[in-house]
């Protein structure tokens, strides 16, 4: 009976075959989409047209179109510049460090909190761990600088109590990456664990009970049931993160940078900002930015291919 009733409906939906008919039927949906399409055209697609200045010698008075073409000169200049390898090394170094240390942390956190027996405290820890996510980058950096200040910062005072000398953390290039990565983890670990909590809560309780009757210890239950059941989510997230390796955010790095730690803190995005916005070398920095974007897109597409073959899930 159900089938009989629903059949005509399906036909009714599939009936308008042409775009014109759809336009007549759903013209309001087109109207709704117009402002959004205009927004994307102006603020996202038009800058892509502007990207041609990467291959031009951009002069403000000649405009984007009128400036003369010079081909790959800016790219060659960038590849040959003395800090090219340093920039790549810093960008990839920070990303990889972040991935290696930051990726397992939310998983461990979710698994451990999930096994915790005291319900109210469990909720409390979760709520507490999400809170740092909402601290703005400026405030977060401010906290880092205040905590790590030589002598007066709380970390150095703690070192003093333990009998160690004061360190000026932020002027040491060798410590920059660790500071950046650990504070990132502090800020985002709880938030990133939400998705694992969701995966853990969908585990069938009967499976755990059966395992427990069969004599599995708690550790065995976690290791053989909980971990495998969040693995799929973890693999997808890991693959997605690999696609973003060249894409570390500008905001926090830029704020933590100072002339003393520059050699290990300068990444492509901050370099583009300095050369382009502060130094007004528009064409050159557009070329550097484009290089970064292209590497990103290649990484993403590769990773998407791998993801599709491994997990049947594409990124898009």
């Amino acid at each position: 009976m159900k089938v009989l009733v629903s059949k005509p409906k399906v036909i009714a939906i599939k009936n308008p075959p042409s775009l014109l008919k759809d336009f007549k039927l759903n013209y309001e949906l087109y109207i709704l989409s117009i402002p959004v399409v205009i927004y994307y055209l102006i603020f996202h697609y038009f800058p892509m047209y502007g990207l041609q200045i990467a291959f031009k010698d951009f002069k403000a008075n000649l405009g984007i179109w009128g400036s003369p073409w010079i081909g790959f000169e800016h790219f060659i200049r960038f590849f040959k510049s003395y800090n090219f390898w340093a920039l790549i090394q810093n960008t990839l170094g920070i990303s990889l460090y972040q991935l290696l240390l930051g990726f397992p942390m939310p998983i461990i956190f979710a698994v451990m909190v999930n096994e915790f027996r005291y319900k109210s405290l469990k909720k409390g820890v979760q709520m507490l761990s999400y809170a740092p996510h909402f601290i703005s980058t400026v405030v977060m950096t401010g906290i880092i600088i205040a905590f790590l200040a030589p002598r007066t910062g709380v970390i150095n005072q703690l070192r003093g109590v333990l009998g160690h000398g004061s360190i000026d953390f932020l002027s040491r290039p060798d410590l920059f990456k660790s500071i950046f990565v650990t504070t990132n983890i502090w800020q985002n670990m709880g938030w990133d664990s939400i998705i694992y909590f969701a995966a853990l809560s969908s585990i069938d309780m009967e499976m755990c009970e059966a395992a427990s009757i069969d004599g599995a210890s708690k550790f065995q239950r976690v290791w053989y049931i909980n971990i495998p059941s969040i693995m799929r989510v973890a693999v997808i997230l890991l693959i997605m993160n690999c696609g973003r390796l060249m894409d570390i955010g500008f905001e926090k790095i830029f704020l933590l940078q100072n002339p003393l730690n520059m050699q290990s803190s300068d990444v492509i995005s901050t370099y583009v900002y300095r050369a382009g916005i502060l130094g007004a070398q528009y064409s050159f920095s557009a070329a550097v930015g484009l290089f970064n974007t292209i590497v990103n897109v290649i990484l993403l597409l590769t990773v998407d291919k791998i993801s599709r073959s491994v997990s049947e899930y594409g990124l898009f």
């Binding site: 775009l19 399409v37 930015g289 974007t293």
Partner: peptide
Amino acid sequence: FKAGPALTTFYLATMFFNAGIIPNYLL
């Protein structure tokens, strides 16, 4: 909605290909 899939692609594409700060600044 016939134009739905095309519009979705149109929106999504910007997530992966960003022109970068200089062209945005010039815009």
